[in-house]
Structures are given as structure tokens and as C-alpha cells.
Design a protein around this nucleic acid. Structure first.
Ligand SMILES: [Mn+2]
Ligand SMILES: [Mn+2]
Ligand SMILES: [Mn+2]
Ligand SMILES: [Mn+2]
Lengths: 217, 217
DNA sequence: TATTATTTTTAGGTTAGTCTAAATTTTTTA
DNA sequence: TAAAAAATTTAGACTAACCTAAAAATAATA
């Protein structure tokens, strides 16, 4: 049985080891969990003790099978609750993450499965992220970033890699949402900002910074 | 901002001061929260410090206005989540309490209000308990216990004063649920057990212990 | 009312999770 | 490859929430 804090560490380690394929460093964890490196070292000892991570001093850390299973379960709960909040309670996609950060720790296997069924076994959360199944299986999609698309090409927005409400609200204002069609009309050679045509309707200006966080197919 | 534990203490004090109109004792709290009296003394100092209770050493404790407001908000959340679990996710009324004990601590005003709207502003939870409104107002119903009903009378089951799954499953087996009609056919003079006719269909035997925990009108 | 019993509080200790400051190890660079 | 820089761990402290054992206050009883 893990504490909320332990679950959050596992989740953070999981996401960090996707980005950087190697061992996760103490400093990276400190950064992501908003704590100090000393506190992380402390916690890593505890998680290793429980068999949830492989921890080598001064080297870094990786999840064990059990640790990864638990991380994926928390991610499953997080994303299912986000779907519930967005679809059933009409929350905006910019609001759901903060609340799901709390709901993801509710402990009840039956609750997760019943929630999943109630929502119609959704495959993706409101940000386009895939929802792991009850066994922790999750499709490893290869997304491309909008910033990698060449002039003249048309793609579909399938997700975002940044979940802050500031970013999502900015997308709302620009009229960009999941599933919309985006045609790259012109790329500025100087700052890599782009003009895109959305759903064949309005043309919008998008900075490189934003384009990097838009996932498309 | 209160911790989960503090919220649980407030809720417990609230319920104990309904039962016994006077000051709530340290021992009563220790009993209800499954802790030792020494730990309760500790916590009471902290809650008093925060202005959530009036605490007089060796006397006992009462909620302040703010403390009562917070207690009622937690109770509101608890009961709304119980309705969600029972009505939307098809949990049995014997299963919802344990899960709601966790969900009641999720902090988001907007979530409570949206959940309330999604459920259609329910007035009662699956056990027949009234749900406080957003301002903490809650109808103070006077229920009678089935054990106080005289032979020959017919009443409607409106609630239960015991929420253990053992008790609720026992009621399920006896075919007793909220809203059903119960006629007291015969009261045993020796052990006060009774024979009741349910919805004019089957006759069931009910012990005094069970009858005391059935609320009727 | 004096003594005993009960209730409650205080004293001192533990664990999880955090912190700062100092020590140690690893990495980088000259 | 030796010195400097960066990353990491250890040492020592703090808070919330609990514990046991002992002391103090209140209540009950002879
Ligand atoms: Mn999220
Ligand atoms: Mn998401
Ligand atoms: Mn309940
Ligand atoms: Mn209830």
C-alpha cells in the first residue's frame, strides 16, 4: 500500500523515463516534484526498500515491473477521471488536470472499472493522451509535433504535450481543439512561427513554442 | 486549509454533538476516530488553534461556526459522492460509504457544484440521509425508529442509522429498502423482535437491534 | 467528605515527508 | 590528470499525526 506521495513519485519517474530513455536523475525528480534533491534521495531509499524502483546511488533510478504497474494504474485513474470531468461534468480541458491530480489517488479497483464502463471505455483523455487498460497496457503512439510539419501539408491535431491551463486556454482562444484539421500555410524562416488554416475556415498565427507542444498526425 | 485528518475530526465532532447535545468528550472522539485519547487531546489543541472548535480542557469540545460550516461541506461532498456511486456507477448502498470516505476530501468548490447539478440536485443520499446545500443548510428531520412503532401500524422506510455493509446487506437479504412499506404485524414481548409485512407481500422477521436502526415515517 | 475510580492531559518517542547546510562523489574542464 | 564545478547523499531539524506511560483533574462512592 503506497502513500499519495509515493504514488506521485512513481508517476513522475515513469514520465521522466519516457522522455529520457536512461536512468532518471535525482535532480530531475526534484525539479518535477517541486522538492529538494535531499528529500528525493530520502524517498528513493524508501521506494527501493519497497521494491518499486531500482536505485543506484549517484547513478539514478528506474521503475521495477511492480513500480511501473502501479504508475500505470495511477495514470489510468488520472485520465479516466479527466474524461469524467470533461464529458460528464462539462469542465474545460484546461481545468481537469488539477482535480484529477487528487482523484487519481482514490483506492478502489471496483471504482476504476465501474468508472471506465460508465464512460464507455474511452481510449483517450481530453488532452489526447492514451488511457492504459486494466492490465497497464497502453498503445505507444508515435506522434509528430506541428513544428515538424512542412509548409503546405495538412494534419489533424491529436494531442498536446503541455497541460498547463495557460497553454490550453491559449489554444481555446486560437480556436484549436483536438480533432481539428490544420494546414501549415507559411513558416517564418526567422522565428519559426507559422500561419495555419484551421478546418478550412480561419487562419491563425502560431508561435514555434506553441507548435512544439501540439501533437498531430 | 485543513488536512484530511482535521476534516475527519470535524465531521466526527459534528455527528457526536447531534447525538449528545452537550460538549463532546475526548474519549468519545477517541472511540469514533479509532485513536487514543492522548492523540485526540493533541489534535484538539491544533483545531482550537485554527479557530475551528471551542476547546475547554477536561470539559470537552464544540464546533465554532467556521468548524460547523466545514464539517457540513465535507458531509455534503460525502453524500453527493454516495449518490453518484449508487446511481451512476451502480454500486450497492452497502459499498458506497467506504469509497465516499475518500472522495469527500477532494478539494474543489466547482467540482461539488457541478457534481450536484449532474446528479439533479438530490435531496437525500442512498441511506436516506439529507444532503446539506451549498450554504450548509440541511433539513432537520425527525425520524422515528421502526422499534418505536406499535403493532398494527404501517410506515414507510426512509433511512438507516447504521451504515455498515453487514447491516445493509442484511436488509438486502430481508428485502427491505428505502421507500418500502412496512406493516408491524406482531411484536414479541420477550425480545422485542417483530414480524413485519413488506409492501403487502412477504412477511419478515426483524430483531429489535435491526428495528432500532431502521428510520421510518 | 475522604478515598477510589475514571477521564483527560502531559511527557517523551516514532514515522513520513519535508527542509538547510555540509560532506561526498561524479563530471567537466583546463 | 589535477583542479574546479556540478550532482548527489548524509547529517541534523522540523511538523503532523500517531503511540505508551505517567501525572493531573474530575467524578463517583463509601
Ligand atoms: Mn492530467
Ligand atoms: Mn490528460
Ligand atoms: Mn456514508
Ligand atoms: Mn450515506
Amino acid at each position: 500500500m503506497q502513500t499519495f506521495t509515493e504514488e506521485n513519485y512513481l508517476k513522475t519517474i515513469f514520465f521522466l523515463s519516457i522522455d529520457i530513455e536512461v536512468w532518471v536523475s535525482t535532480n530531475a525528480l526534484a525539479e518535477s516534484t517541486n522538492t529538494r534533491a535531499a528529500s528525493v534521495s530520502d524517498m528513493l531509499k524508501r521506494l527501493a526498500e519497497k521494491g518499486l524502483i531500482n536505485y543506484q546511488k549517484y547513478r539514478g533510478v528506474r521503475l521495477t515491473e511492480e513500480g511501473e504497474r502501479l504508475a500505470l494504474l495511477v495514470i489510468r485513474k488520472h485520465r479516466l477521471w479527466e474524461v469524467f470531468l470533461a464529458e460528464k461534468l462539462q469542465f474545460g480541458w484546461d481545468e481537469v488536470h488539477v482535480i484529477a491530480e487528487e482523484l487519481e489517488h482514490i483506492r478502489s479497483e471496483r471504482l476504476v472499472e465501474k468508472l471506465d464502463a460508465f464512460l464507455g471505455h474511452p481510449q483517450f483523455d481530453p488532452h489526447g493522451d492514451p488511457i492504459p487498460d486494466a492490465d497497464g497496457q497502453m498503445p505507444a503512439f508515435r506522434y509528430r509535433k506541428l513544428s515538424e510539419i512542412n509548409e503546405g501539408n495538412t494534419v489533424i491535431v491529436t494531442g498536446v504535450s503541455e497541460h498547463s491551463s495557460a497553454f490550453l486556454q491559449h489554444l481555446d482562444k486560437s480556436g484549436i481543439m483536438l480533432g481539428c484539421q490544420v494546414k501549415v500555410q507559411e513558416i517564418n524562416r526567422f522565428d519559426k512561427s507559422i500561419h495555419v488554416l484551421i478546418d478550412n475556415q480561419q487562419t491563425v498565427f502560431i508561435s514555434h513554442e506553441v507548435a512544439k507542444n501540439l501533437l498531430v498526425k
